[in-house]
């Protein structure tokens, strides 16, 4: 095989520019978001991003426990990203892994610029992300859903945070890398983006890109974020303004 990366059996991109799951190079997977799916959480969201299935619950602003973590100047943000044991093909041990701790941290830091925690000193906003089924790009899906859940909880935000990945597969920059492409491809770049402020809040890169490819990859991912933003918007509109009509 000439095309493809490390895995030589899989055709990642055929001659017609069609990828291994039948998408075009600039086509994201099917995305569906629903806001307010959990009754007991202050805010929640469920996302299906391709084969990713993720539930997010948000609590707060509420009292901080343990108390020594509280900050008298501002509120704090806590985030837990967790993959269920049944979310991947081989059972995953439920204890937080190195990878989950990292993703919790980057999601927290990607949301922080958007959330106006300074309005709630001495409190905490807790975000719980549960991955029910994983399929590559789950951190982007989780970030997009977390942002919807925060808005649903009524926590003041400067902007929504949308997220989408781009990557390099068979020497081509493609939008929204799936699990196979992530494993066998050459690069994967998740991007978190605030669409109205036009600011990037998360960028990671696994792989090697030339400066030109890097630029193109960021642009592609931002294009994907804007698509995700429209779906986030629809999720919130459906919950809050569904049978009112604009007056």
């Amino acid at each position: 095989m000439i095309l493809g990366g490390r895995d030589t059996d899989l055709v990642l991109l055929d001659e017609n520019g069609i990828r291994c799951d039948g998408r075009k190079i600039d086509e994201p997977r099917k995305i569906m978001i629903k806001a307010g799916v959990l009754k007991n959480a202050d805010g929640s969201a469920y996302i299906e991003f391709g084969d990713n299935k993720i539930v997010v619950g948000v609590f707060g602003p509420r009292d901080v426990h343990p108390k020594h973590l509280a900050n008298t100047d501002t509120g704090i943000l806590r985030c837990r990203y967790h993959m269920s044991p049944f979310s991947v093909e081989e059972r995953k041990k439920p204890a937080p892994s190195r990878r989950e701790i990292e993703i919790s941290k980057v999601i927290k830091e990607a949301l922080k610029p958007a959330v106006m925690l300074e309005q709630f000193p001495r409190t905490v906003v807790d975000i719980f992300i549960e991955v029910l089924q994983a399929d590559g790009g789950s951190r982007c899906a989780a970030l997009a859903a977390a942002s919807v859940a925060l808005a649903d909880a009524g926590i003041p935000m400067r902007d929504m945070v949308s997220a989408c990945a781009a990557g390099k597969v068979a020497d081509t920059i493609v939008l929204d890398v799936n699990n196979e492409e992530d494993q066998a491809g050459q690069a994967d770049m998740p991007v978190g983006y605030m669409p109205n402020m036009e600011k990037i809040t998360l960028i990671q890169l696994d792989g090697v890109l030339t400066p030109e490819e890097y630029k193109k990859c960021v642009e592609t991912a931002i294009g994907g974020c804007k698509l995700v933003y429209e779906i986030q918007k629809k999720a919130l509109t459906d919950k809050y303004f569904s049978n009112g009509g604009n007056n």
Binding site: A114, P156, M160, P195, N196, K233, T237, N246
Partner: peptide, 10 residues
């Protein structure tokens, strides 16, 4: 003038 908005809307 009334409008439905979500966070970030101008």
């Amino acid at each position: 003038k009334r409008k439905y908005v979500i966070p970030g809307d101008v």
